[in-house]
């Protein structure tokens, strides 16, 4: 455990900050339709929150928050949400990803708006899962770090 990881100030600040960063990430994903933001940015910010936690508390603690199996499930689930939204449009008689063919609400533009939000959520889930798994894979394994110190 390095010096910066033992600092009480950093550990406390990170523990307080992480939920707020996650909340901001959800805001960015849901606000992507009416302002700057969207699935990629929100997903990356959410991933960055968990990466921050894993950097300070250690990879093993981070994996308790986001285990490998959950990570794999989320990464495929986001892509499936996206593709399923496109296929649902075919089921209702439109073309692939032709949102306004879905006859759920009276206004086709409103249906399109909600389906775009759904697609953004799918992108966000994939991006956050992949970013976290990239960090866990690229960062040095904890056993190696301990050995190098001894």
């Amino acid at each position: 455990m390095s010096k910066i990881q033992e600092s009480v100030i950093i550990r406390t600040v990170v523990r307080i900050m992480v939920p707020f960063i996650e909340l901001f990430a959800l805001y960015v994903i849901m606000h992507g339709a009416s302002g700057p933001g969207g699935g990629f940015q929100g997903g990356v910010i959410f991933g960055a929150a968990i990466i921050l936690y894993a950097m300070i508390y250690g990879i093993a603690e981070g994996k308790k928050k986001m285990s490998d199996s959950l990570d794999r499930i989320l990464a495929s689930a986001g892509l499936t949400i996206y593709a399923a939204t496109g296929l649902a449009c075919i089921v209702f008689g439109g073309m692939f990803l032709q949102y306004n063919a879905v006859p759920l609400l009276s206004d086709p533009a409103l249906v399109s708006k909600y389906l775009i939000d759904l697609v953004e959520i799918g992108i966000g889930i994939t991006v956050l899962a992949v970013m976290i798994s990239l960090f866990f894979d690229v960062s040095p394994p904890e056993s190696d770090v301990e050995e190098a110190k001894e």
């Binding site: 700057p36 933001g37 969207g38 990629f40 940015q41 990356v44 910010i45 991933g47 960055a48 990466i51 950097m55 970013m131 990239l134 960090f135 690229v138």
Partner: peptide, 17 residues
Amino acid sequence: DVGFTEAAVGAGITTVL
């Protein structure tokens, strides 16, 4: 949008990697 993405991706995740 592009500036937001670059601030999150370029200055955040790429540096960490």
